[in-house]
Design a protein around this nucleic acid. Structure first.
Lengths: 343, 343
DNA sequence: CTGAAAGCGCTTACAG
DNA sequence: CTGAAAGCGCTTACAG
């Protein structure tokens, strides 16, 4: 170990191994042919010096950093507590690690006009970006596209979707499946607890619910909004129940845009003495674990985020390898209905 | 905008502004004196070119990256779903952003022998590291100290604590406070639901409970372990109840090492028809939100993670500014008992 | 297969 | 206050 306080450099490795810097570099990177003898000498030198290439120097010439940004909005400070996000973060971290890429977490402040974010990205600290759960009014897709930075969105962006790659799940189809399951169980007065309308998933699931109900000739007027949290689901459920009662009818089915909101709704139903599914059948969305733990277990749409993340990382690395020149690509997954006990 | 496909360089800025690269650099970094005229010319050039300094080139010479690693163990895949961790991540992200530092999330795989992690750190991708919630057997503190990389631990490391800086909360004192509150409420048979014994918080809170009970002359034998999750709390509670009954006694107080576990315990108590606090009083730990939402609201120890994170980032930036040469520093916070309705 | 040399894009003494 | 020059630590044509 060189203990002069400074990290050892390639130069020292080369000297110790008795070869040139060029050969040492080639031996270390292993992409070009090097004689067995030179290879062994360099390997030994690297080991005894405890050498690791300097990242900055390397990326200055290779124009690669080995890092990828994960861009998430902090609109909701609770995003970190959301199981969907938690899972997403975990999966992204794992997928990147498998490819030896580092994860730089970039949190887009709501107030910030993206300038800070774009400035960072322009500095080429990262090779590409994965963008999660952006909002209706941001122009991130356009800006990233202008930048020429490889990126893929998880969830189709509101604006500029035609210019970037994205993966998404078919929220409309999934919501329609939920409605069909409720209808098949004989429900006729079907409400929905929707997510925020400025989020892709919130908007599309509501729209899918509406369309399917209309298609089968049922009313699509019982809508209450939540923010994907349990408490908001309970509140929305209470509002729906009150409203349906005021109309003289009684709702007998609910499609909740997240399992957490469905869970909240079940809490509210229980507190009013309503049974699931006898009195009110309910379908959730996500299937990330909570759905198995409710009473009764929740029938829900399985959100294939594992596949989405895997695919997003694959598309991103492809794009990086193409130098960001390739044309946008999309992959859409169709969620499956998981039947448990709430319908 | 230079649209030749390449990002503009300092050279182009200097040329457009009619000054040397040196002057352009000085104007951009704003640390040395530059004539008003030159400053204005450079500012204009930067703007019209859309220039951002190349991060790699800059850090190659400054030896600063502007990035900080957050190292977390992935022992438990659910770490991301844990509200304590979620809050921590959020706070760290914010504290770093305030100082214009980027967050690189490093997840320590349990299987990995840290080599991968250390290799990365040795490459100088980051200026320093914050380490959260490491386990009993890892030697991260020693290794980081050997590396000479500025770092601060959140939670005193098991091994090598004398060589690194850390912030912590006084888990022993807090647990003692919990026991005193239960004793003051007339409880005599006080159990604990402990966290994993290979985690600092788990170990220390158990020890604090034990010592205080012994001090006041009560039995400290009713211990069950959980993993900080709600379900594990319910299971532990069931085990404790059964055991206490088998002993012929009945437990009348519980100290749970996390609010989530306390919540699980309350669920179990309710399912057995036991009332809180009339039959069993309970004190939790963390106070991150769930404690306010249980029925009754939970009396708990407020974990000052906001302060810990702020202090950790402050210590880290100081250490970075000193070039990692300063001596280790520590700050310990004492949690406060928040009295609600469960005791 | 190997080495000398150029160059990646910056910052910073140094001299003026 | 400013500029020419050196240098940060690598990789990669290029010639051999």
């Amino acid at each position: 170990m060189a203990e002069n306080g400074q990290a050892p450099t390639l130069d020292e490795v080369a000297r110790l191994a008795g070869v040139s810097k060029a050969t040492a570099s080639r031996a270390i990177n292993g992409r070009s042919k090097v004689s067995a003898k030179a290879q062994a000498a360099v390997d030994d030198a690297v080991r005894s010096l405890g050498y690791t290439p300097n990242a900055a120097a390397r990326s200055l010439v290779t124009r690669r950093t080995g890092s990828v940004a994960l861009i998430v909005p902090e609109s909701d400070e609770r995003i970190f507590a959301d199981p969907f996000f938690a899972r997403m973060l975990h999966l992204v971290a794992r997928a990147l690690r498998e490819r030896d890429l580092q994860l730089v977490l970039l949190i887009a402040q709501p107030g910030d006009d993206e300038d800070r974010l774009l400035h960072y990205l322009r500095g080429r600290y990262v090779d590409g970006a994965i963008v999660v759960s952006h909002h209706r009014d941001d122009r991130l897709a356009e800006h990233l596209s202008d930048l020429g930075l490889p990126c893929v969105f998880i969830g189709r962006p509101w604006i500029g979707a035609e210019r970037v790659s994205y993966v998404d799940s078919d929220n409309l189809d999934a919501a329609a499946q939920a409605v069909r399951a409720l209808v098949a169980a004989g429900r006729r007065r079907i409400a929905t607890i929707a997510g925020p309308s400025d989020m892709r998933a919130g908007h599309d699931r509501l729209e899918g619910w509406r369309r399917e109900l209309t298609k089968v000739g049922l009313d699509a007027d019982l809508v209450a909004y939540g923010d994907f949290t349990e408490d908001s689901g309970a509140e929305a459920c209470a509002a729906l129940l009150d409203r349906a009662e005021g109309d003289g009818g009684t709702l007998d089915g609910i499609f909740a845009a997240s399992d957490l909101m469905a869970q909240g709704a079940m809490r509210e139903l229980a507190s009013r003495g309503l049974r699931v599914p006898e009195d009110v059948a309910i379908v959730g969305y996500d299937d990330l674990g909570v759905a198995e733990r409710t009473h009764p277990p929740l029938t829900t749409l399985h959100n294939p985020i594992g596949q989405m993340v895997t695919e997003a990382v694959r598309l991103l690395t492809e794009s990086v390898d193409e130098g960001g020149k390739g044309s946008p690509r999309r992959v859409i997954f169709v969620p499956e209905l998981v039947v448990r006990g709430s319908v």
